[in-house]
């Protein structure tokens, strides 16, 4: 191995690496670091096509499975096309499933010492977490795009105005943000990729006991209450309203105020899990 002296003054960054001292420069570091960390995750999309493909395959499979296999046996409360009813449910499903990706990524990094490595360099500590959040949001946007395309192919249409459609997307992303914090909290809690895998298991029933696939009106009484209380249901109903899709005619207070609840639930989840995630992250130093 040749040993060239990399500490020569001409190229010695020791003196160049400074710490930001003003609030503005701190903010600039945080923004840059967030972007660099997010990019690291996004490169995986470009560089590992298999992973990306399977990630995109899942929504497509769901459209096929529920739209056509089960869909023929489904009826929509108050009438309407089942696949039009289904798509907003699938949008929310992809968002909810995102928690598994967040937990896995966070646990991988924590378990492999990547998080510690980041914490041992002078980068912004906000950036470590915010970068993860940004990457997950972008992943979800891409997932939603694929699903929207699938939906258009099978005959789903957004009937509302452009503004309403954008509002629907915004509500879905709002739900995703709240779920990022659940994911970061759980990821820091379990710390190993093996344990993170366990998080996937309860996800499916949680997603099923909602109004995504079947209207709660058609469920037994106690299950209907659970399904309507599921935060995912509020977002699904709200997006159905905004996209002007069928199946929005619930009679309970929760479904009549779905738009409100689609904001309240994510806000509540964030209010609980954001401090928990920050606490967990800080606890790494204790």
């Amino acid at each position: 191995m040749t040993v060239t002296d990399v500490r020569t003054p001409r190229d010695a960054p020791t003196r160049i690496v400074a710490v930001p001292r003003t609030p503005l420069s701190r903010l600039r570091w945080a923004v840059t670091d967030t972007w660099v960390v997010a990019q690291r995750d996004l490169v995986h999309w470009v560089r590992s096509p298999a992973q990306v493909f399977s990630g995109l395959l899942f929504p497509g499979m769901m459209v096929l499975l529920f739209g056509y296999v089960f869909g023929s046996a489904m009826t929509v409360e108050n009438g309407g096309d089942y696949r039009e009813f289904l798509m907003p449910g699938l949008f929310a499903l992809v968002i909810i499933m995102g928690v598994g990706e967040t937990v896995t990524a966070v646990a991988d990094d924590a378990g492999a010492g990547v998080t510690d490595r980041f914490r041992s360099i002078p980068m912004s500590r906000v950036g470590v977490v915010a970068g993860r959040c940004l990457a997950d949001m972008m992943n979800s946007v891409m997932g939603l795009c694929v699903l929207v395309l699938c939906g258009l192919v099978v005959g789903w249409r957004a009937g509302g105005s452009l503004l309403e459609s954008l509002a629907a997307v915004a509500l879905l992303l709002l739900l995703r943000i709240s779920i990022v914090w659940i994911g970061i909290y759980l990821g820091l809690l379990v710390k190993t990729p093996e344990a993170a895998a366990a998080v996937w298991t309860p996800l499916f029933p949680i997603a099923m006991i909602s109004n995504a696939f079947v209207s709660p009106e058609q469920m037994p009484g106690w299950l209907r209450v659970v399904a309507e209380l599921n935060p995912m249901s509020a977002t699904v109903t709200a997006t159905r309203e905004l996209f002007d899709n069928p199946g929005t005619g619930g009679t309970s207070w929760l479904s009549e105020n779905a738009l409100l609840m689609a904001v309240v639930w994510p806000a509540l989840v964030t209010a609980i899990f954001f401090p928990l995630a920050v606490h967990r992250y800080r606890k790494m130093s204790r």
Partner: peptide, 26 residues
Amino acid sequence: LIGQNTTTDHVLTGRQNLMLFGRLYH
């Protein structure tokens, strides 16, 4: 700091890994 595990990213190239840290050092 070099911990017990290697923390470089497997998907990135060697140069990209070092660039990542270079950029985190601003």
